[in-house]
Amino acid sequence: MVAWALLALYVLVLLVGPLVVPGDPLAQNAEQLLPPFSPGHLLGTDDLGRDLLLRLLYGGRPLLLVTVASSALAAVAGSALGMVAGFFGRAADGVVMRAMDVVLAFPLVLVAILMVAVLGGGAVNTALAITVSQIPYFARLARNLTLRERTQDYVRAARALGVPPLTILRREILPNLSGALLVQATSTLAVAAGLASALSYLGLGLDAATPDWGYMVKAGQEFMFSNPGLVLWPGLLITVFAVACNFAGDDLADAFETGSRR
């Protein structure tokens, strides 16, 4: 419950926070550089005199957008590929799963870095890079579950009635896989958030001018001892978000497992 409450709080604060705390996260103040706490700046300012609280509020928006978009795209694409591979088998299974094995042969961060290096930076390309790195996990899960479901009586009955294969996948099998895929998608949010932050930290994600938690950690390292909040606050927000996503995924898994037993 705490994890779900934290995720809801994140979404609420990131959407409404900039309206409650108005200001420009890019505005610089040469007279107030790096004080941890100063009048008009609750959390202080960075080395350019930009309000840290405002940058935290605005910096979570691109992370949330990239994380949710990449997880959703990976879930849709990976599940579709896995279901096709598991249902049709043979050639389709061989081609799809060998392609997934190639992607899995590389570390996640390396796959994302290669994609961003080819496509360029920006929120869209970052989301696509993370999507590609996460597709194999959904494909494997969907394939294994489809292999189990395709031997069930309800699938055999649909085939005997002449229902087209794609219709069977969409109407009969997919609803029975949705629970497990939703759990995987929720857990993927944590991985996507870590990858998005890592790419920004390496300077390969969003534009440096855009407030972003990952880049804020990198930019604040130089002033770790004079103003540790520049690193600790964005780092803490990333960590709490990832941990909350993991706990939410575990909670969903327990809920679906309990429901299936009933």
Rank of each mutant, 00 (worst) to 15 (best):
L65D: 06
V16G: 06
Y10H: 00
M83L: 07
A74R: 00
Y201P: 13
D24I: 08
G89E: 09
L174T: 12
L166M: 09
E222T: 15
A117K: 06
R262F: 13
G121F: 08
V243R: 02
A72S: 05
L26G: 14
L19D: 12
V21F: 14
L6G: 09
F247S: 02
I113F: 06
N144M: 06
A80G: 11
M100I: 08
R55Q: 10
A209E: 14
A5Q: 09
A5Y: 11
A112V: 15
S178M: 15
Q32E: 15
M100V: 06
R90E: 14
P175V: 01
G94D: 14
N176H: 14
A8Q: 04
M100E: 05
G82K: 01
T45Q: 03
A105N: 05
L166K: 00
N29V: 07
L141G: 08
A244I: 01
D251V: 08
G40S: 06
L195H: 09
Q134C: 07
P36T: 01
V16C: 08
V116E: 02
A127G: 07
L6C: 13
G259T: 03
E172L: 06
T167C: 11
T151S: 14
Y201E: 01
S178C: 11
S260I: 13
L128A: 07
L252A: 04
V217R: 01
V155I: 08
N125I: 01
G94Y: 12
Q32W: 14
D212I: 07
L56Q: 04
A160T: 12
W213Y: 09
G94C: 09
A117L: 13
V111Y: 05
R143C: 13
F247V: 13
L64I: 00
V16D: 05
V163A: 04
L174K: 04
A80Q: 06
E222L: 14
A219I: 05
S70E: 01
L6F: 15
A244R: 00
L252C: 03
V191D: 01
L119K: 02
S133Y: 03
A244V: 03
L189R: 00
L34M: 09
A77N: 03
